[in-house]
Simulated scan of single mutants.
Amino acid sequence: MANIKSAKKRILVNRTKAERNKAIKSGVKTAVKKVNAAIEANDKAAAASALVAATTTIDKAASKGVYHKNTASRKVSRLAQAVNKMA
């Protein structure tokens, strides 16, 4: 355990940031699952609306530094590609 005051504060700050990042990543995963569920159900309209919501969630995560911008872009691209492939 840390003895120095600044080290103790760092531990608390890092724990807070880790919890925040975990919550944001969890939200992204949920949004992606909703898109994938709509694709599995073959519901083009639901998939398109879920894609818009997922894109927003992923972009917000990238802007907060949870995901690298290229990672976020890749996730959005793959989801959009999957939705567009639907017949």
Rank of each mutant, 00 (worst) to 15 (best):
V66P: 02
K60D: 09
V52I: 09
V83Y: 10
A53I: 01
R10N: 09
A82F: 03
L51M: 03
A61D: 06
A82N: 06
A18Y: 04
S77E: 12
M86D: 03
K29F: 01
H68G: 10
K8P: 02
A18W: 03
S63H: 13
D59C: 04
E19S: 09
R74E: 03
N84L: 07
K25I: 01
A50P: 12
A45I: 13
K8F: 02
A72D: 05
A41W: 14
D43E: 11
H68L: 14
A18N: 06
R15V: 13
K5H: 04
N42E: 15
D43W: 12
K64W: 11
A38H: 07
A23G: 06
N14E: 14
K22Q: 11
K75Y: 04
A62H: 05
K85M: 05
D59K: 15
D59E: 12
A31Q: 12
K69Y: 01
A41F: 09
S49L: 00
L12R: 06
K25P: 03
M1S: 11
K33C: 00
H68Q: 13
T56I: 00
K60H: 11
A61S: 11
V66W: 13
A41D: 15
V52H: 12
T57N: 09
A87C: 02
T55Y: 05
T56R: 15
N14Q: 13
R15P: 02
V52C: 02
S6A: 10
T30Q: 14
N70D: 11
I39Q: 01
N42G: 06
A80Q: 13
S49A: 00
K9H: 04
L51P: 11
S49G: 00
M86V: 03
R78N: 15
S26G: 12
S77I: 02
D43V: 07
S26L: 03
L79N: 05
V66E: 09
A37S: 12
N70R: 10
N70T: 08
A31E: 11
N21Q: 10
S49M: 00
A62I: 03
V52A: 14
K44W: 07
M86R: 03
N14T: 04
A61T: 10
K29W: 01
T55H: 13
N70I: 12
N3D: 12
A37V: 01
N36L: 04
S63W: 07
K8L: 15
K17N: 09
K17R: 07
R10I: 07
A54S: 00
R10H: 10
A82R: 07
D43Q: 05
K17H: 06
K33P: 00
V66Q: 08
I39A: 01
A48P: 09
R10W: 04
A45V: 14
S77M: 08
S73L: 04
V32K: 09
L51S: 09
V28G: 02
G65W: 15
I58H: 14
N36A: 03
R10Y: 05
V13G: 03
K85T: 06
E19M: 13
N36T: 04
S26T: 10
K64S: 08
A23N: 13
A7E: 15
A54W: 00
V13W: 03
K60E: 13
L79V: 01
T56Q: 15
K34M: 02
S6E: 11
I4C: 05
T30L: 01
V32P: 05
T55P: 05
A61L: 06
T57Q: 15
V76S: 08
N21A: 05
T56P: 01
Y67Q: 02
S49Q: 03
M1W: 08
